[in-house]
Design a protein around this nucleic acid. Structure first.
Lengths: 233, 233
DNA sequence: CAATGTGAATGTATTCACAGCT
DNA sequence: AGCTGTGAATACATTCACATTG
């Protein structure tokens, strides 16, 4: 039920990796690439690259490799970034400001066409090229400007309300920077970038990589089944 | 070879999710939680929660559930966030500034104890509580202040040099916000948060969820094997 | 009795091995 | 000859089913 739409989830997650590397190579004037080469740059095996690209279309030439330009065109088409996703930012605090100034979105196929904040003192001011609008006008803007994706960068307490308003306005996807899970009804999609969680995951990997917690984790995995412990601390 | 250190990777990736939800519940005064409940809040099954927590230690009480406080203590211990990771930010542009102002890191077990930038005009200025230092002093600070984790938020061209300097200085992990893959020698760990990639992944999920590309993806998956195509465009 | 912890069964992703194409 | 695309084999993760515990 979660989704079997042709492209396996892990493959979909790697599409953006492929795209970034391919564009780097194209810039450097490279015209074709072999699966081995691409995989090596990305820390993947050649087989995995071919399987992934196989899910996406038959674009390789045996004995030659893949034409980078065609592959990019295909991936951009699949992700819709060839047509420019119209995007809104909701919540203009520290993070929101950084996002509004992040010029790279444009070249990657996303155009920020509106910014909203609930603080009346911010409404009407500008950040970079963007004028901040009142949350009241969200429905109107989403409709008029064809906005399909929103970035939520409000404080955590305001995030779900913002999401509800966005869903109500007819948005299709939300990228959430507030550190809490958002509830959205299907087929709306919400994904999350939690800076604290990213750091914590890194920290855990560091502890694993440096071997700090090898015994700790093992000790408890293979202990006697249901061994007695007191519920008192 | 990649790592089999007791805790499976997908489980490790969920640890931060568990922690965030558990802390929310603890704040609200909840003392214990059942796997079903926790899973429901996170979009996971009860079995999955129990398997994950089983990898981490035997902290559940049949018929009762898990003591939230103990579970948090355990997860914080595992991730080392109970002792406060000393962290540096390298690159103080839009993103770096947002990170330096992001007060949540502190409560989540990370303390930013230094900020660096290669631009001499920025050196000596302050962002929030943090004074910006010259890159020359990186080795010195890392040593003196016990820095083990760094956040790289430089422009892409400077990111690998920054990473090399950090590795040289003896850092253990890097969280990279620059849109390119960093090479680091083991056991140093580098993970990535690429805002453009996050948006692209969301866009792809939106297209999958809305069914926009069902036929597109399928068409090519089951086509005749190795059908002829010209390499001319 | 109600919930955990865990082997067994299932489902999914990755890797292998090689047929088929240019 | 060299590389892609892909079934078959393997490895891994999730789910099921239930014995075990507080």
């Amino acid at each position: 039920m979660p989704s079997r739409p042709g492209i396996p989830r892990p493959t979909a997650a790697r599409v953006s990796l492929y795209l970034r590397e391919l564009e780097r190579r194209l810039e450097q004037g490279q015209a074709t690439i072999r699966s081995r080469e691409l995989g090596h740059s990305l820390g993947l095996t050649d087989t995995q690259v071919r399987k992934d690209l196989g899910h996406i279309g038959h674009l390789g030439f045996p004995g030659v490799g893949y034409r980078i330009e065609d592959l990019i065109a295909r991936l951009r088409f699949l992700s819709g970034t060839d047509r420019g996703w119209r995007t809104a930012v909701v919540g203009v605090g520290n993070v929101g400001r950084a996002l509004l100034s992040y010029d790279r979105f444009e070249t990657e196929g996303f155009r920020i066409v509106a910014a909203f904040d609930s603080d009346p003192r911010k409404v009407g001011t500008r950040v970079g090229d963007h004028e901040i609008s009142s949350m009241d006008r969200l429905g109107e803007f989403v409709q008029d400007r064809g906005i399909r994706i929103a970035i939520v960068a409000t404080p955590p307490d305001a995030a779900q309300d913002a999401a509800d308003a966005l869903v109500e306005a007819g948005i299709s996807g939300i990228l959430n920077f507030a550190p809490r899970r958002l509830e959205v009804p299907p087929p709306v999609v919400a994904t999350e970038v939690d800076l604290g969680m990213s750091l914590l995951q890194l920290a855990l990997q560091v502890r694993i990589a440096t071997g700090d917690l090898l015994e700790i984790a093992d000790e408890s995995s293979k202990a006697a089944p249901m061994r007695a412990r007191s519920i008192r601390r």
